[in-house]
Amino acid sequence: METPLGGDEFAPRTTYLNTSKCGLLPRRTVAAVTALAEGLAAGTTGGSGSFAVVDRARGGFARLAGVGPDRVAVGSSVAVHVGLVASSLPPGAEVLFVEGDFGSLITPFAVRGDLKTRFVPLDDLADAVRPGTALVAFSSVQSADGRVADMAAVRGAAAAHGARTLLDATQSAGWLPLDAGAYDYTVTGGFKFLMCPRGASFLTVTEEAQESLVPVHAGWIAAEDLGDPYGPAVRLAGTARRYDEPPGFLAYHGAERSLALLGEIGVDAVHAHATALAARFRDGLVRLGHRPVPGDSAVVAVPGLGGRQAELAAAGVVVSAPAGNLRAAFHLYNSAADVDRALDVLS
């Protein structure tokens, strides 16, 4: 029987299958946030938080993403990071999206009003890349139904037509191995499968893509030399740190601990664990006469079954119901008993 990973780091009081909406915080993460908050209340921290801790979080994400920390920028949200990329495109540039993808990946481009936006079904994404496509922006895993993109095919098509790629790994980083260096840009909200406090988000930029990405929200922390915060920066950081937002220290003090835990367990182990539980849930749903979205994702969706969410919640089983789907997401802290409990309620 699949037992949770992470030892005594987690203590859920529900059958929690809602990581696609928000991940559980490990005990060590809660302790780090609490310690900083108490220090701020007592006036004993000497500041609002530690940049060294932020850099450790940067490094922790970099290791999970398969890139060096110099390719990672920290920030507060996916939408801010996407907006940075959107602002760098010339008027009239074509951006290709997946129909029904998450709004934070799409809206920053749409509000410009001077870009060409095109939407296609997920399965047609690679074939839809054409000469003149400037950027393909897509999620590795669809938020509404857990479908996994054919990322290799999309990368190949983009390379063949000279298009850049922007991958949103928010619904996959932490359970699905990520090679961020294979994309011009990746964005990842940390509060789902990375189990960070909300307010920690990560942008990766290749060296080549950095040449055309303007740091439009650069503050004093984007400077190469942080010793003098007054006046315009003499020189911006040569790394992706030039795109940093001022970090929310409470979020990043927690993120450093959560990312360390994931590093200790390993994404490969989490992937095997979570997808096995998801497969068990899909098999059980089929036995009950339901038709879940097929695939090997850690996120399971059943179209049209979202109306059962309230019934499950009343029984202590926490799921989501995006776009009318019943959505359950499995992570390292889940077990076979969680799967069977959800199936028992649905039966």
Rank of each mutant, 00 (worst) to 15 (best):
D8N: 11
D8H: 04
D70K: 09
E9T: 01
Y183R: 03
W220L: 02
S201R: 09
G83A: 12
T15P: 11
F102Q: 09
L288P: 07
A158N: 02
E245I: 01
G162L: 12
D127N: 07
H217C: 06
L176P: 02
A52N: 09
L250M: 12
E256V: 07
D114I: 08
Y16W: 13
T188V: 14
L115E: 07
Y16P: 00
S320I: 01
A163C: 11
D338S: 14
S139M: 13
T117P: 03
G39E: 13
A62E: 08
G59A: 15
P229Y: 13
E94K: 15
A313V: 02
P229G: 11
R291C: 01
Y185V: 09
F191P: 03
V187L: 10
V148Q: 07
V136H: 00
E211S: 13
P69G: 11
N334K: 02
L326G: 09
A278P: 04
D8R: 12
L332W: 03
D168L: 03
G100R: 00
G227W: 00
A169L: 12
W220P: 07
L261F: 12
L84M: 13
L250S: 08
T15C: 15
D244W: 10
G60M: 11
Y230T: 05
V78K: 12
E207V: 06
G266N: 06
R198K: 08
P197R: 11
T275I: 07
F97L: 06
A42F: 03
V85A: 01
V319T: 14
D244S: 00
S77H: 09
D244Y: 14
S20M: 08
G49E: 11
H271Q: 10
S320W: 02
T239G: 08
V286R: 15
A301S: 14
R63W: 05
N325F: 04
V82K: 08
D179S: 12
G289M: 13
A251D: 11
G304W: 04
P121E: 09
V293Q: 04
L135C: 13
P292Q: 02
S140R: 15
S104Y: 09
Y183A: 15
V78P: 04
A218K: 12
L64W: 01
Y183T: 05
T29A: 08
P12G: 06
L176D: 03
V74F: 06
L84R: 14
G68T: 02
A180E: 00
D244P: 00
G307Q: 03
A65Y: 04
V270Y: 04
D101Y: 00
P26S: 08
H161C: 13
D168R: 04
P91E: 11
A237W: 01
Y333L: 08
R56G: 13
D114H: 12
P322W: 11
E264C: 07
D283N: 05
G47S: 10
P108Y: 15
R241S: 13
P131E: 15
A301H: 05
G59M: 02
L84W: 10
A159K: 07
G284Q: 06
F119S: 12
L250V: 05
T44L: 00
L346I: 09
D344E: 15
T204N: 10
F109Y: 15
C196G: 02
F119C: 03
A158V: 09
A37K: 15
T34N: 04
S258F: 00
L194M: 05
V141R: 09
P322I: 06
A278L: 10
E38F: 02
A41D: 11
P131F: 08
A110W: 14
